[in-house]
């Protein structure tokens, strides 16, 4: 078969996510699976699988004769910071002796976590993708996930990349080292709170955030800019 035919014969998975979810939960006892809707133009909902049974669930998805998701094409990380979700809830209250429905906003605080997302395809059945996610307990010490490299070998380098850039430690990974940055590096640059090193001493055309950071290397000019614009650490490089 030619490559064009293979690509054009690619099709979506026949089963719905709900069917896959119920079949997986029946096959792997104790597995908890949640369907994460992803409204938007792409509209790619995914399965959130629990870390404890992740390897068993992944093995099922790979080996099940109807699914045969034998190809992990992509593994990536996502950093979710702490966030608050505002919800409008209708609450029945008694106002001036009359029962009324009143809108009330409730705030839900969701602590931050890191996520690993895998895109699965089937070479055998030429269908896909099925997207699965795993979430860490928190963004610090609990950022551990089970490695899916034993299930899909192609995840090895990509899990190393996630470890390098997001700091998720994959338990069961055969060779978990940094892959892009050097071994002595301690930061995780794709995290949203990462601060890159300050080498902004020569910016010929600075603007926006770069301008703000470059200003710290300029000599303060209080008579022109006003004293309040002097930032700490200015004149660090003999300007």
């Amino acid at each position: 078969m030619e490559i064009g035919q293979i690509l054009s014969s690619k099709k979506l998975i026949v089963e719905t996510l709900e069917q896959i979810k119920s079949r997986v939960e029946a096959a792997v006892s104790g597995a908890k699976i949640e369907i994460v809707q992803n409204p938007g133009p792409a509209n790619q909902p995914s399965l959130l699988i629990d870390n404890e049974h992740a390897v068993a669930v992944a093995s099922f998805l790979r080996d099940d004769p109807k699914l045969r998701l034998d190809f992990c094409s992509n593994a990536t990380g996502v950093d979710w910071l702490d966030r608050t979700v505002k919800k409008m809830v209708k609450v029945k209250t008694i106002v001036e002796g009359v029962e009324k429905e009143v809108d009330q906003t409730t705030e839900e605080k969701i602590p931050g976590y890191l996520e690993a997302v895998y895109h699965l395809y089937s070479i055998t059945h030429k269908h896909g993708p099925l997207i699965i996610r795993m979430r860490t307990a928190d963004r610090a010490d609990g950022a551990r996930l089970p490695s899916l490299t034993p299930v899909w070998r192609s995840a090895e380098f990509q899990e190393r990349e996630i470890f390098d850039l997001y700091g998720i430690r994959f338990d069961g990974h055969p060779d978990l080292r940094r892959i892009l940055m050097w071994d002595e590096f301690v930061d995780h640059p794709m995290r949203k709170d990462y601060r890159d090193p300050d080498d902004y001493e020569y910016e010929p055309t600075p603007h926006d955030e770069v301008l703000e950071r470059a200003k710290r290397h300029y000599a303060p000019r209080p008579q022109l800019d006003g004293a309040e614009n002097i930032v700490a650490g200015g004149d660090a490089l003999n300007r």
Binding site: F185, V186, D187, P197, R221
Partner: peptide, 23 residues
């Protein structure tokens, strides 16, 4: 050398003299 956050030193001070920018 490979440092924990950046190369150390980030530039060779005897060699690298960024041009002064007139603001």
């Amino acid at each position: 050398a490979f440092g924990e956050h950046d190369l150390e030193p980030p530039a060779n001070p005897s060699l690298f003299h960024p041009p002064k920018i007139e603001r």
